[in-house]
Design a protein around this nucleic acid. Structure first.
Lengths: 177, 177
DNA sequence: ACGGCTTGGTTCAAGTTTGAAACAAACCTA
DNA sequence: TAGGTTTGTTTCAAACTTGAACCAAGCCGT
């Protein structure tokens, strides 16, 4: 096949998407770095732990919900542990595993940082979208994410390209990022 | 004000967005790294140069259209130059400036890599969206991006939070990423 | 022409990410 | 139950990003 290039509409959408996502992540990272001394991802680790039962989660589960590699998470948790916001405990059932536990100080930092973060997300994103657009965004992203996770362990069927890796999900509940 | 938390809809949209953007960038980076030996951003540098008049662009202009810091671009161009895909030339009009020029080898690599990249973007994103969604995505992203660039040199008016930096735009034309 | 401010780029160190390799414990299965 | 595979996590080096600091060249007003 002679490559199906992007249509003008698709190109515009793609460029806009790249620009928006780059700018948005940069802005959020900067805000969180200044007010919380940590990048967005690290904040997300705390946030996810905070609304997990017992404020703790197995490393792998955390990595899966955050959609990042275990390696990346190991680094993040190590740093957060050094700062006393998270503690590692070995898993009783499975001696291979370890769980990340949010410390009281972690909770405190999160509570102090969350408002500013949410305000930022709101100001930069949601205050600029109509309710319908919020719905559209969710629908679009949910579909894309699902597609990216299903191809998962891609057995490279027939002529399929083995894009992507990563695994399934184990969602937590409420709160922000 | 007591912090306007995200509504359930907003939360779902936000989480979905984070997941989708993370997975998408990872997948694209992986594909490009394998088939082109470079991360998405570097590919974008080549792509942007390729459809610029004379296949060249001032560093600052390139950084602005790519929405990245000059520093990041310096690194990327240095690497691409080391690989012979780009060449730096000093600007005649402004002796401070330098322009990045796409070399013939750069063009070759781009032509060899573009099809796979476009196929990926298509398979992972556009093939999963209806035409209406493509339009919605563009509209949403354009609005967000615009908002993020206007606040630009934020003079921190009254009680404004000085989120973000970065500058305006000087678009190029056709092709992919 | 001089000093000062702005602009275009680079440099450097510290921080983060990637991917492959290493480990160890859990799980088969013969 | 020994051996082989899979699973959970860390380690390590190389690559990339960040932000502040720096340097030069334009720009301006005097």
């Amino acid at each position: 096949m002679t490559t199906r290039w992007l249509s003008p509409e698709e190109q515009r959408a793609w460029r806009a998407y790249i620009a928006a996502s780059r700018l948005l992540e940069d802005a959020i990272d900067r805000q969180l770095q200044q007010e919380g001394g940590m990048p967005h991802l690290f904040y997300s680790v705390l946030a996810n732990l905070s609304d997990a039962p017992g404020r703790q989660l197995r490393m792998t589960d955390l990595a899966e919900t955050l959609k990042i590699t275990r390696s990346r998470l190991t680094y993040a948790v190590t740093r957060l542990e050094r700062d006393g916001l998270v503690r590692r405990e070995s898993c009783s059932q499975d001696k291979r595993g370890s769980v990340a536990v949010l410390t009281d100080e972690g909770v405190a930092v999160l509570e102090r940082t969350a408002p500013g973060h949410v305000e930022t997300v709101r100001a930069l994103l949601f205050d600029r979208l109509t309710p319908e657009q919020v719905g559209q965004l969710e629908e679009i992203c949910t579909g894309i994410a699902r597609g990216l996770q299903d191809g998962e362990d891609t057995p490279s069927g027939a002529d399929g390209v083995p894009w992507l890796r990563r695994s399934s999900c184990t969602p937590a509940s409420s709160a922000e990022s």
